[in-house]
């Protein structure tokens, strides 16, 4: 057990847990951020994606001990931003949401991508989202949505 401090959705938090605990479990069970989903538990599907210092990670394989002092944003925190609003509108307009289980992770991946590259090409979008599996949409509308958000949200990223 260790005391681990970090920033979670803009709040300073501290928790006493094993440093090998999965960040995903801490977020879902201890902080009740259930927008972070478990799809595979092996870092493959991206449903559990969160941002650590603005970069996407799969929280199901992040050991809690590595987030000491870092800034974590889940979909719940991200959804309060202007950038989420732009992405949200684009996802809605393009029809990029079906069952929704991959969607929080997709939005986190989009944010992480746009943070690095505010105006990605289709190919760059595909690479940026390649760690997020979706079984409903065939990705086509998601790719279009990210493209459209990058245009409409010009200057936000």
């Amino acid at each position: 057990m260790a005391k681990i401090k970090f920033t979670l959705n803009n709040k300073q938090v501290e928790i006493e847990k094993s440093p090998t605990a999965r960040l995903l479990d801490i977020l879902r069970e201890d902080f009740d951020f259930t927008g972070v989903k478990e799809g595979c538990g092996e870092g493959e599907c991206g449903a559990c994606a969160v941002l650590i210092n603005d970069q996407i990670v799969n929280s199901c394989i992040v050991p809690l001990g590595t987030v000491e002092g870092k800034n974590i944003v889940t979909i719940e925190g991200f959804s309060k931003t202007k950038r989420h609003e732009v992405l949200r509108n684009a996802f809605e307009e393009e029809g990029a949401v079906q069952c929704g289980f991959c969607t929080p992770g997709m939005l986190i991946a989009s944010e992480s991508l746009l943070n690095k590259n505010p105006h990605p090409t289709d190919e760059e979008i595909k690479i940026g989202l390649s760690g997020n599996l979706c079984r409903c949409t065939g990705y086509n509308m998601i790719i279009k949505a990210v493209k459209s958000a990058s245009k409409k949200g010009d200057g936000l990223w």
Binding site: P19, T20, R28, E29, G41, G43, I61, P63, T66
Partner: peptide, 30 residues
């Protein structure tokens, strides 16, 4: 244990339980 992208998967267990490592762990990522 560095980033955990292999070990956390290899030793994964039931959700909301600790990964089942057979040794004590040193986290060196940071």
């Amino acid at each position: 244990l560095a980033g955990g992208t292999d070990l956390m998967i290899q030793n994964r267990a039931w959700s909301n339980t600790l990964p089942k490592f057979n040794k004590d762990i040193l986290l060196v990522f940071n």
